[in-house]
Amino acid sequence: MTAPTRTALLLIGFQNDYFANDGILHAVIEESSRVSGVLKNTLNLLEEAAPLFDLIVSTPIHFTDSYGELEEPVGILKTIKEVGAFKAGHSGAETIPEFKQYEDIITEVPGKRGLNAFSNTHLEELLRSKGIDHIVLAGTVTSICIDSTGRHAADLGFKVTILSDCTSSRTIFEQEFFCENVFPLYGAVKNSSTLMTV
């Protein structure tokens, strides 16, 4: 007889610089987020289905004012440095206020400095200590942090599920492309309502 699956919900990128109307990078994900309903659906998941998860984790990304953690950054990390996003101690780096009411059930794992939530954090150690073998991903950006974290989790032997309506990308096309063509290569893609009825 096999042991029952133990599942963690992993929340990535739910910070003001992405989700607040005046967030520095809000425009990057605004259209995709509106179409997928990422925030509304994730809040509904926390409200209605939190007991489904053995662990709920948030992995915010933070940098010092000088961005000394980034050596010759490229791509999205270069953009983050250039526009001054996710500075520790600044409002843009703070977790969105909508999560405040759930802070007693969300475990925050600090240390994320790049694309993959496992890098420079104790996320794997925490998951192993709780006997987690299945990770469900929600957040942004689909093509970057969600994909990087999902692939790494699969390489570590975790079962991976990505919630198509609780994630958002830079464009609607990119969101659909990853959900239809990339994520199924290493995990499952589900709608949060389907997850809640299983």
Rank of each mutant, 00 (worst) to 15 (best):
S66K: 04
Y67S: 03
G68V: 06
E71M: 15
E71K: 14
E72N: 13
E72P: 04
V74P: 02
V74R: 11
I76W: 00
I76T: 11
K78I: 13
I80N: 04
K81G: 02
E82N: 15
E82W: 05
V83G: 00
V83M: 01
G84R: 01
G84D: 05
K87D: 04
G89Y: 03
H90C: 07
H90F: 09
S91M: 12
G92T: 08
G92Y: 00
A93P: 11
A93Q: 03
A93M: 02
E94M: 14
E94P: 10
E94R: 10
T95R: 00
I96R: 01
P97T: 14
F99Q: 11
F99W: 13
K100E: 15
K100T: 07
E103F: 08
I105C: 06
I106L: 06
E108K: 08
V109C: 08
P110Q: 04
K112E: 05
R113I: 15
R113P: 13
R113W: 14
G114L: 13
L115K: 07
N116F: 04
A117D: 03
A117W: 01
S119G: 08
S119C: 11
S119K: 11
N120Q: 15
N120V: 14
T121G: 06
T121E: 05
T121W: 08
H122L: 05
L123S: 01
L123R: 00
E125C: 12
E125I: 14
L126F: 12
L127Q: 03
R128K: 13
S129G: 03
S129P: 03
K130I: 07
G131T: 00
G131M: 00
G131V: 00
H134R: 06
L137C: 08
L137A: 07
L137Y: 08
A138K: 04
T140K: 06
V141S: 01
T142I: 11
S143C: 07
S143P: 02
S143A: 12
C145L: 06
S148G: 05
S148N: 05
S148Q: 08
T149D: 05
T149R: 00
T149P: 02
G150R: 03
R151L: 01
H152W: 06
A153E: 09
A154W: 14
A154Y: 10
A154N: 11
L156A: 08
L156P: 12
G157C: 07
G157T: 06
F158V: 12
F158G: 09
F158K: 10
K159N: 13
V160A: 06
V160D: 12
I162A: 15
S164D: 13
D165G: 09
D165Y: 01
T167W: 05
T167V: 12
S168Y: 05
S169V: 05
S169Q: 04
R170F: 06
T171G: 04
E174S: 07
E174L: 09
Q175I: 08
Q175G: 02
E176D: 15
E176K: 12
E176A: 13
F178S: 11
F178I: 01
C179E: 14
E180S: 14
N181L: 03
N181D: 13
N181Q: 09
V182Q: 12
V182P: 01
V182N: 12
L185C: 08
Y186N: 04
G187W: 03
G187N: 06
A188G: 09
A188V: 12
V189H: 13
S192M: 09
